[in-house]
Design a protein around this nucleic acid. Sequence first.
DNA 1: CGTGGTGAGTTTTTT
DNA 2: ACTCACCACG
Length: 755
Amino acid sequence: MEDYLEELNKSQKEAVLYTDGPALVIAGAGSGKTRVLTYKIAYLIQQGYRPYTILALTFTNKAAREMKNRVSEMVGAETASRLWMGTFHSVFSRILRKEAVCLGYTKDFTIYDTSDSKSLLKSIIKEFALDDKKYKVGSVFGRISHAKNALISPDDYDRNRSLIEADHNAGIPRTCDIYRAYVARCKMAQAMDFDDLLYNTNVLFRDHPDVLKRYSEFFSYVLVDEYQDTNYAQHVIVKKLVQNHHRFCVVGDDAQSIYSFRGAEIENILSFEKEYADSRIFKLEQNYRSTKTIVKAANSLIDKNRNQIRKEVYSENITGNKIGLIRAYSDLEEGIQVMGKIAELRMRSHCPYSDFAILYRTNAQSRIFEEEARKRGIPYRIYGGLSFYQRKEIKDVISYFRLVVNPMDEEALKRIINYPLRGIGDTTVGKIIACASTNGVSMWEVVSDPDTNALDVNNGTKRKLIAFAQLIQSFIRSSSEISAYDLAIKIVSESGIQKELFSEMTIEYQAKRENLQELLNGISLFTTNREEEGDESVRLIDFLSEVSLLTDQDADEEEEVSKVTLMTVHSAKGLEFKNVFVVGLEEDLFPSSMCMNSPKAIEEERRLLYVAITRAKENCFLSCTKSRFRNGSMELCRPSRFLYEIDPQFLDLPEANTVKVQSQPENNARSPFGVARTTTPPQFKKVSGVTDNKKNISSFPQYDLSVGDHIEHERFGKGEVISLEGEGDSCKAKVAFEHVGEKQLLLKFARFKKL
DNA sequence: CGTGGTGAGTTTTTT
DNA sequence: ACTCACCACG
């Protein structure tokens, strides 16, 4: 163990060894944050802390798993497995299941995922007879979620003037009523949504001092990873847990705070020192990951943020290459150029595909890179998109499981009451909901006993309802007798799901069958694992509570072939790659158009780019395009303001630019992109030149062309005219483009200019 | 009650 | 491009 400590640098070591009070570790990008956390846990254990009294909270499952693995290597898997280590959500859900009764919940409560929550909100908005064009499910959900993350109850909400006013101004004054109804319905369904896992943990500790006392005495040391991403609720709960002894350590980097959209408060980390007068702060400033150039370039960018903890991140690695710039004419060509560059670099340096990552702001950008990779036969792996457990066929099956475990689960019931089709349509479901709410009972009670609840449906429908209820009841009876796996099999065959999935032999259905098979395999694996660990009766609820908090990133399949990684910048946090391409650096995309009127949001976007750049170990490329297909039409793009904020001495400015600057007399400033650079950087939306750009695009001048002319096309880039045919409006040109090959252009529509 | 077609809106990020 | 809501018909 003493040897381990020698592997740390001075500040890392200090951070590990200090355990007497609150510790804030500011960990610059690539500075060995996980190392400090894992060594610290090992050190605590060495100091005599019992492992099961150490609580380590992370933000993602992936981070938790990685930490667990690394701790295992140091102290052994046996000891590591006793630690309380996991995401906030998973650890708190464990606590909540234990203490559920205090809160009026059963241990088997359901966890609603985002789509369940939204579906419930949709019902409520409909029941309130509100205009769903005004009351958009997404924004109502967002407001409720923010309220919960700020520990604001429906009653608090009502009393909060600024919230009420904001809703009023947004034309949705009844948001608070929806919130109240939503909470009641979740409770009625014995369900908690993601935010409830935090909110209710706080309620538990607030209203039950004895319970809090038990946990705060039980946990002898608390560690929190990615503290900059915690929201108010998490902050308060941590505070409560350590109130007795103040022995805890939070690790984070304010420069990498990128989750404010879901309630993260950068203030939690910025004001830590004020909050805990007895705290010590440790700064890890040496970056071990990247070249000097990458670190300095990233620093020069993040320097533009006002709100931050000052630190000097530096690298002792080689200087390395400058940051590459890629300028494309269109999103299409961006894909071609980036993939081309990857192929070229790979040839030159013989590094595997897994050394490359393409990072983008939005998932929608992935498609073009995917297509281009496929064309070239470059293997790739996309992260993000729908998680396995969110696919329709999987959610449907899981909903059966959920209903069996918790018949009050309204969202699960709605999902499967007519799947597979059994003649219970929207009309009937509407009646059931209405009947349930007038009688103050759950939908399940209405379905299983339509008569007592005076449900107004005809006899045929009633029979169908009763048959459905009996089906579910038979599953419930079996659930106490047979294993989770056997029950799953029984459900799939007796519900008719199996028949339905074999009713068609199309590729989609084939995929669905495979997915279902995978789910069953997962249950089987889960059951055997638990049984090996000595758990005699593995219940379905155990499986459910585990999978409801999993995301796609957690499927850690061993990759047999090396692949290029495609992911959003958000999901790249914490990862590193030899070569990184950050794409789509354009105004309204990165920074996102969502935050044009908020300097705070712009600072967050800047941090996001900081995160992206600092993922790179050796080479980093930034790309932008002149035009991009968005929302169904071609839009002109201006380079991101961030490109001008990076100190140009770290940028590899291409020679060709000089030429381009000359050929575009309207340019009045030297810029890395040879694109009209207004003397002031692009400002907020109302002053921006977006509309002017739109005009430019349609007033592209027409030229008389002849064979051999060189042209510059809006999407395809530069090329040479090979042949011409037709006259007037139907005149067509065949053009050989540099990057995209030969294309036919109908001159009437083609957007290009002669060079 | 179910289905199949059309049309509109949609995209920021995730536990 | 892709999903979802709505509508008309069987």
